[in-house]
């Protein structure tokens, strides 16, 4: 197990280095001179421009700029927002908990919908419930997150008046209000992942139900429920954990749109606002932190995979 983990950690280091190069290169795509953008009304003054270029190390070669930038990143310095002149790391620290709360709720909703539906579809293979689950799954995959959000606001907030259409209350402030403001966005965000989880679970369960140990369990006279849950599902969940972790990227992407629709001041809304304010250090910071989190959560899923897979535990 330690060897497996050691290999995985060794593999992610070059990935993280390449991610940092990729994020750094994004800045090179920027049209025009960043110093001109930062100088604002003083853009006509060559002295001011030279000073800004020196401050941002823009007057050095690209490799030197990268090394300076990555050195700062490793010390927790993601640069300064050009618009509000605050450290990007501080902005990220303020917004990230909001998105993490939304993401965690969405993931729980996705698991609660996706896994049982996948089990039912597999057990009822090629029957009505299987067809229905597949149809709902495909519809879930084909529904744009932001449209589902708008439709739910229309139905639940505008027509029925059950939940607030937008806004956010932190959990620490008032947990009831916090749940009221986040349950609908979390459902919207969880919906797409639930459809993917349903497909993975169905596929893994079909493989599992076809195995000899399931036949043996049935031959022993165990109840079908026990066979499905204790024998088939336990083994089917192993690939679902890994494949589910790969969908965390979908969660981050979906959060951008969901936060925009429901006006939730999280990580996703921050990147969109930064894009329109041409606040490139914030865009870079968000991409870098998201990629880092994604790689780390995948590593966590790998650890979990080894822990729940008895065949790998002793390896």
């Amino acid at each position: 197990m330690r060897g497996h983990l050691g290999t995985r950690i060794a593999q992610i280091i070059p990935t993280l280095i390449l991610v940092s190069v990729l994020v750094f290169c994004l800045q090179q795509l920027m049209p025009g001179d960043p110093a001109l953008v930062m100088a604002g009304e003083e853009r006509g003054d060559p002295q001011v421009l030279a000073q800004i270029r020196a401050e941002l190390w823009l007057d050095r070669s690209l490799p030197v700029q990268y090394l300076h930038w990555i050195g700062n990143v490793l010390q927790g310095n993601l640069g300064y927002s050009w618009r509000i002149r605050q450290p990007v790391a501080q902005l990220v620290a303020e917004k990230l908990p909001v998105t993490l709360q939304l993401g965690a709720m969405a993931f729980v909703i996705a698991v609660l919908i996706g896994v049982p539906t996948g089990i039912i579809a597999a057990v009822q293979r090629n029957k009505f419930w299987d067809y229905l689950a597949n149809a709902i799954g495909l519809a879930g995959l084909s529904t744009p997150t932001f449209w589902l959000g708008i439709m739910l606001i229309l139905l639940i907030s505008v027509d029925l008046g059950w939940l607030p259409p937008s806004g956010y209350v932190p959990l620490t402030e008032d947990w009831r209000q916090s749940l009221a403001t986040t349950i609908m966005p979390a459902f919207v965000l969880g919906n797409a992942i639930a459809a993917i989880l349903m497909r993975h679970t169905r596929s893994a369960m079909l493989t599992s139900l076809d195995q000899d140990y399931v036949r043996t369990a049935r031959a022993k006279g165990l109840r079908e429920f026990v066979v499905v849950i204790r024998h088939a599902l336990r083994n089917a969940l192993i690939p679902v954990v890994t494949l589910g972790a790969l969908e965390l990227g979908t969660l981050f992407s979906g959060a951008v749109l969901t936060e925009q629709v429901f006006s939730i001041p999280g990580f996703g809304k921050m990147i969109v606002d930064a894009v329109f304010n041409r606040d490139y250090p914030v865009v870079q910071g968000v991409v870098l932190v998201t990629a880092f989190l994604y790689v780390m959560l995948n590593l966590l899923a790998d650890v979990l995979y080894v822990v729940i897979n008895p065949r790998l535990r002793g390896a």
Partner: peptide, 12 residues
């Protein structure tokens, strides 16, 4: 692939 699809597309 470590950069979520839409976030990378938005940044680009």
């Amino acid at each position: 692939l470590a950069c979520p699809f839409l976030i990378l597309a938005i940044a680009l």
